[in-house]
Amino acid sequence: MSYITKIASVAISAIVISTPVFAQDAKVLEAAVKARQAQMTLYAFNLGLLGDMAKGKVEYDAQKAQAAASGLTALTKLDGSRMWLPGTDNESLENTRALPAIWAEGSDVGEKSKALKAAVAAMDEAAGQGLEPLKAAIGGLGGACGACHKAYRAPKS
């Protein structure tokens, strides 16, 4: 085989191979969106108990509050890199409100993620200490969640 035909055959096989990989990619992207939405649901589930205690809807229980806060901490430790793949924004996929700005130049999503970790750590410290410390930590959590949603999530259509 001449040099030229070698290149041509490599190129053709690359195209042939990449077609099934592309279909595979779509599944990977969809799975990533599902996984991060599941993570968000679990955040809301654990926050829900803490918030309902803060509101007085559920009686404060130090052990349960601590368990919920530890749940939040565990959630912040999940590897985000596989859930936030490029190509999973709301312009590329249907079932997400994630804005392309997350992946764009100048994105401060990493800073916001650090701020969330700090707010969760503060709640983990506070939740078992009493209702007043728990109440004081809720605002910071709300601010951290809201800051990212405000910048990087499209409004409900």
Partner: peptide
């Protein structure tokens, strides 16, 4: 509930523990 509204205005959490969006954020 009134407690839900007050919490929303404080932390931005809805009763489902989503956070406020759009201009309301």
């Amino acid at each position: 509930s009134e407690a839900d509204i007050a919490e929303y205005l404080s932390s931005g959490f809805t009763p489902e523990y989503d956070s406020a969006g759009g201009e309301m954020a």
